[in-house]
Computed example of a mutant assay.
Amino acid sequence: MIVILTGILATVEQDRWKEVVESLSPSTVSSTEQCKSMLELSYRHLPDKLKPCFLYFGAFPEDQELTTEKLTWLWIAEGFVRKNQSKSLEDKAMDYLMHLISRSLVMVSKQSSTGRVKTCCIHDLLHEFCLAKAKEERFFQLLQGFDELSGFNEPHNHRRLWIYSKPKHFMGSSLFCPRVRCLLFFNR
């Protein structure tokens, strides 16, 4: 939580630091509820363009390292990264990722020999936060396993659907959601 707090303070004008610190109680670091409050504060201070990029981490299985190439391509495909005359979409998406890393919301897992980020991940507590916030904001719906998949009708006002299941569960399946983007993850 201390690292998250420094990420918040790094993006807030110095004259507002006292206001941020005073909003915390002495038990902030030890209490789970206070930790969630800290994460909420950090999320609120994110620029709007970075919020969907951050929530997107909740769609992947917990503790999974993501290649930056795959992640940035997905962000671009989703339309989270807008075209800019001075930078390519890939460079701009990488800037978004570096911004999340600088706020201590995303951790670098592996770097290339030139120092570029190869893979990244988020802490378990941040993953839980992303899942809860995505559900609250109807950013995506997550189905895990065959039981949830077989009982699924159609999402209710969610923009994305993530399914964690086995390939055999889709054999002969008529699962089709015309208004929702689907991303499938197969358990091994």
Rank of each mutant, 00 (worst) to 15 (best):
F140H: 04
L97K: 02
G115L: 08
F152G: 07
M98I: 14
L149Y: 05
R138H: 12
G145I: 00
F152N: 12
E137L: 11
I101K: 12
H158R: 04
G115E: 03
R159F: 09
S88R: 09
R116F: 12
D95A: 10
R116N: 14
L105R: 03
L149E: 06
K110F: 12
V106H: 07
R116W: 11
G151V: 00
R138N: 09
D91E: 12
D95W: 00
F139N: 03
D95M: 08
A93R: 02
N84Y: 04
L97W: 00
M98T: 13
L105M: 15
S112M: 04
S104Y: 15
A132T: 10
E148T: 01
F146P: 03
G151R: 07
N157F: 08
Q85V: 08
H127E: 02
R138Y: 09
L105E: 04
R103S: 09
R159Q: 14
E128T: 09
A132R: 10
H99S: 15
F140T: 00
P155H: 02
K133S: 03
S88W: 02
V106A: 05
D124K: 13
K135H: 08
F140Y: 14
D95Y: 01
F146A: 14
K83Q: 11
T114K: 15
V106Q: 00
F152R: 09
H127R: 03
F140I: 00
Y96D: 05
C121W: 11
S112K: 10
S112G: 15
N84F: 06
H99G: 11
L143F: 05
E90K: 13
D91A: 11
K83P: 04
H156D: 14
H99W: 06
A132M: 06
S104N: 15
L142W: 04
L142N: 02
S104I: 02
G145E: 01
Q85L: 10
K92S: 11
S113K: 15
Q141P: 05
S109E: 14
C121Y: 15
Q85R: 08
E148K: 02
N157D: 12
M98Y: 13
H158Y: 15
E90Q: 13
E90H: 06
F140N: 01
M94L: 15
V106S: 01
S112Q: 05
E90S: 12
P155K: 00
S150F: 10
L142H: 05
S102H: 12
K87H: 14
T119G: 05
K135L: 11
C130T: 04
L105F: 08
K87E: 15
K135A: 09
S112N: 07
D91L: 07
S102M: 11
N84R: 06
S109N: 14
H158W: 04
A132W: 02
G151K: 10
L149T: 00
L105P: 07
R138T: 08
V117G: 08
A134Q: 01
K118R: 14
E137A: 09
F139C: 06
S150Q: 13
L126H: 10
D91V: 09
M98F: 10
H156L: 09
H156A: 06
F139S: 06
L105W: 01
S150T: 11
L149F: 03
V108Q: 08
G145Q: 01
Q144L: 13
D124Y: 06
L142G: 00
E90L: 08
K92P: 08
S86N: 09
E90M: 10
